[in-house]
Design a protein around this nucleic acid. Structure first.
Lengths: 343, 343
DNA sequence: GCTATCGTCGTAAACGTTTACGGAATAGAT
DNA sequence: ATCTATTCCGTAAACGTTTACGACGATAGC
C-alpha cells in the first residue's frame, strides 16, 4: 500500500496525493478531503525510508544512554528526562529513540555510526565528561546535538545543567546551621563533569565559611547501595568521623543507612545524611525520610529538547534561534535524615 | 559522501563497491580490500534510508514501553531487560530503539503508526493485557512481534513469561512453613496478565493447602511506595490483620515498611513481608533485608530477542524456526523480612 | 580454433517519496 | 476574441542503495 496504489485508487496523480497529505496550499479543498479520507480508510501512511531518502531527514532524534551508568545510578532520572524530551519532540512530529550503549563499547563509535549511517537527525548526549571527544566529533561535522551537563568540549552547543553551586550552598548552609563542621562528600567517577562540579562547589562553600578542607572527607564511591555502604564504613573507621555526609544519590544512601544500622547508629541522630539527587517519593518513605533535592526532570527534558530544536534549521524559527544553555535549580526538601543539632 | 563518490574515488563502479562492502563472493579479493580500506579512510557508511528503501528492511527493532508503568513500578526491570534484548540483536546488526508511550496516548495507535510507516522490522511489547488489541492487530498484519508476558490475544506468537505458579508456591510454602495462615496479596491493576496470573496462583496454592480464601486479603494497589503504604494501612485496620503480606514489587514494600514503623511495628517480626519482583541489590540493603525473588532479566531479554528472531524470515534459520515460548523461573532469596515463626 | 566455463565487473532498474517545472482549464479584463 | 492571472494538477527527476542481467577477458576442454 504505497502512495501509488492510493493515487490509482483515487484516479489522481501521486504528486497531488503527496501534496494533499503534506498540506501544500496548491491543492483543491475537495480533493484534499477525498485524499485524506481514502488514506485513513486504507490505512496509508508514508513510508519513512522513502520520505527520508528524498528529503534527507528522518524525523528521529536519538538519545544515547549507557546502561553502565543507568544501572549504577538511577534509571528513574533518565526515564523522567526522556519523557519530557519525547513530549517536546512529539509536538513537531519527531520521534525519540533511545540507544543503550553497553559498558564495553566505545560511545564515540556509537555516535559515529549514528551520524554516518544517518540514523537520526540530531543527538542528545548525557553523562558528559570534562573532556568529551564525542562532542568534538559532532561539532566538527556540525551535526545538531545537545547535552545534559556542560562540558569543555564541543564548542558552544545547547545544554541543560544543574546548579551545583546552589545545591551545595543550600546543603552546607543547612548542615552548618545544625552545627556541623565535619561535612563529608561522596562523589562518583572522576572525569565526569557532574562530579567535578560537585567537588568544586563543595570546596568553595566550605572555604567561604572558613572551614578547613579535609581531603580525607572527600571519597569516591560507586553511586549505588554497595558504594554507599563502603563509603560509610570508611567514614566510621576514621579517628574523627564526619558528623554529616552528603551523598550524590539516594541509592548510595540506602547502603549508608544499612551500614549505620549495623553499627548501632541511627541516621538523622548520630550522623546527618543528605542526598543530592533522589527519587523524591522513595526518599519520603525511607526511614528516616531523606533530605534531598527535588528536580523537575520532566521540565528539564522538555527544555533540553527545545534547546536542541533551536539549533536545527527546520525548527529554529519557533525558538528564536538563539543558543539555549540553562542552569536549573534544585529545591531542597528538608526531612529527618539530617535534622538534628550537633556539638 | 555516498557510495557514488566512493566509487569514483576508486575508479570502480558502484555495483562493485556495494558488493564488496556487503561481502558478496563475486568480487576480487584485492578489490574488496581496496574498497574496505577506502571506506574506512573516508568514513563511508551506507545510508540507512537508501538501503532500507531498496531492500525493505530497516535493521531496527522497536521496544514499546509506557512511561506510565515504568514510572509507577521499576525502571530497573526494563533497563536490564532492554540491555539483554539489545545485546542479542546487536549480534545480527540490528538496533533496538525504545519508544516511550505517554500515559494518555493509546498504545494501539502507536503500534499502528510504527507498522504503517515501517519504522521497525519487528516489535517487542511488554505489559500485555489479557485482552490485548495490539497483538491482534499485529497478528492480523503478520508483523513480527514478541511479548513479555502471555496473552489470550494475538494467536500463537513468541513470548517469554515468568513462572508465577512456582513463585507463588515457593512463597506460600515458605510462609506456611513459618506457620502463617493469614497470607495477604497485593496486586496491581486488573486486566494485566501479570496480575491475573499472580492472583490465580495465589488462590490455587492456598486451596491446595486447605487454607480458606479470604477475599478481603487480596487488595489492589498501585505498585509504588504510596500504594504499599495504603495497602498496609488497610491491612492493619482489619479486625484480623494478615500475619504475612506478599507484595508484587519492592517499591511497594518501601511504603509498607514506612507504614509499619509508624505504627510501632517491625517488618520481619510483627508482620512478614515478601516481595516478588525486586532490584535484588536494593532489597539486600533494606532494613530488614527483603525476601524476594531474583530474576535473570538480562538473560530473559536475550532469550526474548531470540524468540522474536526465530520468527523473522531472515534469521529464522539460525534459531531452528520453531516457535519459542518460555516460562522463566524465579529464585527465592530468603532474607529477614519474613523470617520468623508465627502463632 | 571453436565453444563452454569461470571470475569479475559495469549497467541500469527498482524501492517510495517529494518537488520543480510545465501545462490545462477557468475566470476576469480589455 | 484575445490576453493575463490564477488555480489546480500531472510528469518526471532525484534521493542512495542493492541486485538481476549481461558483458568482457581469460582459461580450459575438445
Amino acid at each position: 500500500m504505497g502512495i501509488k496504489e492510493l493515487a490509482r485508487h483515487l484516479n489522481i496523480s501521486i504528486g497531488t496525493v503527496s501534496r494533499a497529505l503534506n498540506g501544500h496550499p496548491e491543492v483543491n479543498a475537495e480533493t484534499r478531503k477525498r485524499v485524506l479520507e481514502a488514506a485513513a480508510a486504507l490505512g496509508y501512511a508514508p513510508d519513512q525510508a522513502g520520505r527520508s531518502l528524498r528529503q534527507g531527514t528522518l524525523n528521529v532524534v536519538a538519545l544515547l544512554l549507557s546502561t553502565d551508568l543507568t544501572s549504577k545510578t538511577d534509571t528513574m532520572f533518565f526515564m523522567e528526562l526522556s519523557r519530557g524530551i519525547q513530549d517536546q519532540f512529539a509536538e513537531h512530529g519527531l520521534d525519540l529513540v533511545i540507544h543503550l550503549n553497553k559498558p564495553g563499547m566505545d560511545m564515540l563509535d556509537r555516535v559515529k555510526r549514528i551520524v554516518e549511517r544517518r540514523q537520526a537527525d540530531a543527538l542528545i548526549l548525557a553523562e558528559t565528561r570534562d573532556n568529551d571527544p564525542r562532542l568534538d566529533y559532532l561539532a566538527g561535522r556540525s551535526f545538531p546535538f545537545a547535552t545534559m551537563g556542560r562540558s569543555w568540549s564541543g564548542g558552544s552547543h545547547p545544554w541543560m545543567d544543574l546548579d551545583f553551586d546552589f545545591a551545595m550552598r543550600a546543603a552546607i548552609d543547612r548542615l552548618a546551621g545544625f552545627g556541623h563542621r565535619r561535612v563529608a562528600l561522596v562523589t562518583g567517577d572522576p572525569g565526569y563533569r557532574l562530579d567535578t562540579m560537585l567537588q568544586d562547589a563543595y570546596r568553595r562553600e566550605l572555604m567561604d565559611r572558613g572551614i578547613a578542607i579535609d581531603e580525607a572527607l572527600m571519597i569516591r564511591a560507586d553511586t549505588h547501595e554497595e558504594g554507599g555502604y563502603k563509603a560509610m564504613t570508611e567514614f566510621l573507621a576514621m579517628a574523627a568521623p564526619p558528623t554529616a555526609v552528603i551523598f550524590p544519590h539516594y541509592r548510595a544512601v540506602v547502603g549508608a543507612y544499612a551500614c549505620l544500622s549495623e553499627s548501632g547508629l541511627q541516621p538523622g541522630r548520630d550522623v546527618a545524611i543528605l542526598s543530592c539527587s533522589a527519587d523524591t517519593t522513595i526518599a519520603q518513605f525511607m526511614a528516616p525520610p531523606l533530605t534531598c533535592f527535588r528536580l523537575d526532570l520532566y521540565g528539564l527534558g522538555r527544555r533540553l529538547a527545545q534547546a536542541l530544536l533551536a539549533t536545527m534549521p527546520r525548527f529554529a524559527e519557533s525558538y528564536g534561534g538563539a543558543l539555549i544553555q540553562e542552569i536549573w535549580p534544585w529545591e531542597l526538601i528538608g526531612r529527618d535524615s539530617d535534622g538534628f543539632r550537633v556539638g
